[in-house]
Simulated assay, not measured.
Amino acid sequence: MKRRQFIGYAGVGLATAIVPTFASYLPANAQSGGVSVQWLGHTCFLFTGGGVKILVNPFRQLGCTAGYRLPKVSADLVLISSQLLDEGAVDGLPGNPKLVFTAGSYEFKGIQLQGIAIDHDRKGGKQFGINTAWKWQQGGVNILHLGGAAAPISLEQKILMGRPDVLCVPVGGSDKAYNAEEAKQAIAVLNPKIVIPTHYRTQAADPNACDIAPLDEFLTVMQGTTVRRSNSDTININSGNLPDSSLIQVLSYKF
């Protein structure tokens, strides 16, 4: 039986929140169906579509995120993958968005969400605990955000995740997320249509407190896969025109 859980409010605090073409690369303000995906730095994204705004993994400015702007954007729902400060800092978000941070099945404004537990380290979760990967459909597009996954994807997890249209996958390594080779293996398992790499070193990083690799290491490992680079931090993706095989989409961050 499908387990139903409650969705809490960000303003209440974490402890009390229990609770599926080739992409149409259109200008961010284009009026098209589907979903708008905005990269706010690190593993933080804002997904807008179907009249709903979903924010994933807002962070604090420290270490690898020191030079990014705080993602204080308006959202209806906030999903976080862990309570580490680079994936689960909800203080100061505008309004009173609803918050989900625990694996399970949820419904929000007609959107079905699935939080899937996967280890946040390579030691069975003993070092950094459990990461929650988030799966949902918005604007007709199947989205899977792996958060800070660090463990291989099991058969059971693969069944829950399905084949995403858009996969946000960490690629920079460290003790708490996939490195380039591990990200490649996850992509092979999931066979997504569009891959958006996350959790890699940029000029936002504090050089003395950031141990993740730059994007180039992942792109080198993925040689042979088409790479598209956007001059914007935002793309619109339409469900009617997705690629048949995986394509890597790199978004730009305006410092």
Rank of each mutant, 00 (worst) to 15 (best):
L190T: 02
G110Y: 04
G33V: 01
I212C: 04
A30H: 05
K98E: 06
F255R: 14
S239K: 07
G224L: 06
Q157G: 05
I80W: 00
V189H: 00
H199E: 04
G8A: 09
A151C: 14
L70C: 05
T132Q: 00
G115R: 04
P20C: 08
L144Y: 05
A183M: 09
R3P: 14
I143Q: 00
N29E: 12
G115W: 06
I116H: 02
L14R: 13
I237G: 01
D76E: 10
R163W: 01
K135F: 01
D206P: 12
H42K: 09
K109G: 02
P58H: 10
P243S: 14
L144E: 03
D244V: 06
A103L: 00
I196H: 01
F22E: 08
L62F: 09
T225P: 01
A177M: 13
T102Y: 05
S81K: 02
N96S: 15
I237V: 14
A28V: 07
Y9Q: 08
G110N: 08
Q185G: 04
I212D: 02
T21D: 10
D165R: 05
S174P: 01
V35C: 09
N29V: 04
K176F: 11
N191A: 15
E181Q: 15
I54C: 00
D91N: 05
Q203D: 15
D206A: 11
I196D: 00
Y106M: 08
I116A: 05
V141A: 06
D211H: 14
A183E: 06
A75H: 04
I116R: 05
P20S: 12
G92A: 08
P214D: 11
H199R: 12
S81A: 12
G41P: 12
K109A: 11
P192K: 09
G11P: 02
V73R: 06
I80V: 11
Y178H: 15
P27T: 07
I153K: 03
A10S: 11
A180Y: 03
A204P: 12
L215H: 13
K176Q: 05
A17N: 06
I7Q: 06
P152V: 05
Q83S: 15
A17Y: 03
I194F: 07
L79A: 09
L167P: 02
G125M: 00
A180D: 03
K72Q: 15
I7H: 03
A89S: 10
G139V: 03
P214R: 08
Q223T: 11
P94W: 07
D175P: 05
V78S: 02
S32F: 07
L155Y: 09
D119S: 15
L190E: 01
A89N: 01
G104A: 06
L85H: 13
I212F: 12
I130A: 04
R163Q: 12
